[in-house]
């Protein structure tokens, strides 16, 4: 998808610039933006490495595993069609926890394995099961404790208090996930 989106953004951007007479700004804007991506990443290396370092300790100490176990009772209610000890549950739990802790790179592999296991339980192979719909909607509703990269970006651009968005972020992420679960449960009941 990015293949077309990226090109479209550039073509449209240049086309609009040509019509509005902003061509000189575009040249400088493009070069500035590319340069800035690097400065942003330098700040990000620091903040991100701090987080992955701490999370590695959490992984080795079994914190992540015990969190997934704690999630079981909730998952049982969200996915009543999935047998309790099915492997799908392990992968779903791993995906949710990884997203929750901001470990996006660990979340995707677990999520894809969860889909595979859910597909093995699915009777109609080209049509999403209720459990799949719930999993996807839940996943896309975003449930995360700390968006560490947003904090890194805020630091880079000189925020006086980069972490002030953590509290509001937690409240709103709960709101979006609550909306997701209510919608998915309602849709399950109707269809």
């Amino acid at each position: 998808m990015l293949n077309y989106l990226w090109g479209a953004m550039i073509f449209i951007g240049i086309l609009v610039a040509a019509f509005t007479g902003n061509m000189a700004e575009v040249t400088n804007g493009a070069i500035d933006a590319a340069k800035e991506a690097v400065t942003v990443c330098i700040t990000m290396v620091g903040v991100m490495s701090m987080w992955t370092g701490v999370m590695k300790i959490g992984e080795e100490a079994g914190v992540i595993r015990s969190m997934s176990r704690g999630l079981r009772p909730i998952l049982k209610r969200l996915f009543p069609d999935v047998p309790e000890n099915h492997r799908a549950m392990d992968h779903i739990a791993a995906n949710v926890i990884a997203n929750f802790l901001g470990l996006g790179w660990a979340a995707t592999p677990a999520g894809l394995m969860a889909m595979e296991e859910l597909q093995s339980l699915n009777r109609q192979k080209d049509r999403a099961s209720k459990a799949m719909c719930m999993f996807m909607i839940f996943n896309m509703s975003s449930l995360q404790l700390v968006s560490i990269n947003i904090i890194a970006y805020r630091t880079q651009y000189g925020s006086a208090n980069p972490s002030e968005i953590i509290g509001p972020g937690i409240i709103t992420t709960l709101a979006s996930t609550a909306a997701a679960v209510i919608f998915a449960k309602a849709a399950e009941a109707v269809t």
């Binding site: 951007g13 575009v26 804007g29 493009a30 933006a33």
Partner: peptide, 15 residues
């Protein structure tokens, strides 16, 4: 870099 480049063009060009 790729996406900031595209956004940079969209912004500076006025889109």
């Amino acid at each position: 870099i790729g996406l900031m480049l595209a956004v940079g063009i969209l912004r500076s060009g006025g889109t």
